[in-house]
Simulated assay, not measured.
Amino acid sequence: MIKVKGLTRAYGSFIAVDDISFECRPGTVTGFLGPNGAGKTTTMRVMVGLTPATHGDVTIGGLHYRDIPNPGRHVGVLLDASAQHAGRTGREVLEIGARTMGLPGVRVDEMLDLVSLDGREAKRRVRNYSLGMRQRLGIAHALLGDPSVLILDEPANGLDPAGIRWMRGLLKGYADQGGTVFLSSHLLHEVEQIADEMILIGNGRIVARGTRDELLRDATGGVFTTLVTALDNHQLAEALTERGLVVHQAGEGLRVTAEPVDVGRIAADKQIVLTDLRAGHEGGLEDLFLELTAETQRDVLPNDMSADEVRA
């Protein structure tokens, strides 16, 4: 369990993190989302004792990080995959960590296997690793002590699509076994696929939090829509209308004011074959994210400039 209460971190007159509070429960993945410079990394540095809080408190399992005995056995941390000793081999990095934590050497081999770094790669010096390989090594080090809590800053950074899918499965499986996962990212679509709860931060303040469905409900005003296409759209439209749903033509399919599961059930009841079924509010979370963190977004066109003018 991670508890953050009234956390503030100031650098002179600049407030990097402004009075934030939240909890991360065992068995869940919590996504910490925000633009670059929103306060994510500062918050995580305070969590693990690298940066002192100006005000407020952070505890992990009821203790401050500095008071946790042999903390690597309880909290796995990855804040910067590029901060590993460039002159050591991947295996040496893990062996030093294992000795520091009092772990058997076999644990190193287990972690190398877990993150798919083979024997040849493990013998290479970290300076010769790609960013994705450093990320895998960093995750291996975070998991080395079999901790109950993981704190990861941008863990998907540098991973290829297969690596990102692997990481999602790894972290979800870790949480399913009772672990607490807290990960930051500016990649909304990646986090929403695995996070049980998401916390959105902008300008150092929490601007929204909740499950994916709760955030979508806020983003859409509680109105859900579905895009659906069937072999017989006319038959499907009649079936949906009979159930009192609002149906409109949308390209080659239909837009329905209902959730996908409800549309699917009606189609199944009428034995109507569907060729496409998806949420019609897929941009809802992204729109909410951009709206709530607009003041800290860097990549915004001036109000009087169009995309065509930029291309020109």
Rank of each mutant, 00 (worst) to 15 (best):
A38F: 06
Y65E: 05
P69Y: 08
D269C: 12
D176V: 06
R91C: 03
G62H: 04
L152R: 07
L114H: 04
R107L: 06
D299A: 15
D18Q: 07
G173T: 08
I164F: 00
G72N: 02
E23Y: 00
A208Q: 05
R298Y: 14
E242H: 12
G37L: 13
F224T: 02
E95V: 03
V106F: 11
P71Y: 00
G244W: 02
G253I: 01
S13W: 02
Q297P: 09
L171R: 08
S306H: 13
A268N: 14
S148D: 09
G6A: 10
V246S: 14
E197S: 11
A258C: 12
L301R: 14
I266M: 13
N233V: 00
L117K: 03
E154G: 12
L50P: 10
L143N: 08
R107V: 06
T42F: 07
A268R: 15
P71N: 02
Q84W: 05
W166N: 06
L254V: 06
D57V: 02
M133C: 09
Y174N: 03
N36G: 13
L183P: 09
R73C: 07
G204Y: 03
G251V: 01
P302N: 14
L277C: 14
G244R: 08
T275S: 15
G105A: 14
G253A: 02
R125E: 12
A237I: 00
H186C: 07
T211G: 11
M198R: 07
A312L: 13
R243C: 06
D299L: 15
L292E: 07
I206Q: 08
G87W: 04
R124K: 14
Q235N: 05
E242Y: 06
P302F: 15
V207K: 02
Q84K: 05
E295R: 15
D262Q: 15
V247H: 06
A142W: 00
E214V: 02
Y65S: 09
R120M: 00
T257E: 15
A279L: 14
T211R: 08
M133K: 06
L301Q: 12
V77S: 11
M47V: 11
I60E: 03
A142Y: 02
P302G: 13
L150H: 08
D18M: 04
L240G: 07
D276H: 15
V207W: 01
D269M: 12
Y65N: 04
V149T: 14
E23W: 01
L114S: 02
G204F: 03
G49W: 00
T59C: 01
R168I: 05
Q135D: 03
G37F: 13
T229W: 00
E197W: 01
D176K: 13
E23F: 01
A175I: 10
L79N: 06
H74Y: 06
E282Y: 08
A98F: 03
G39I: 10
E291D: 15
E23L: 07
L236S: 04
R127I: 06
A267Q: 08
R91I: 01
L240A: 03
V108F: 09
M44I: 12
D19Y: 04
A53W: 02
D146H: 11
H141N: 14
L200P: 04
P155H: 07
F14M: 11
R205F: 04
V58W: 00
D18F: 07
H64C: 03
Q193L: 13
K40Y: 01
D299Q: 12
D269I: 09
E154S: 11
G76M: 05
Q271K: 15
T241H: 10
G221S: 04
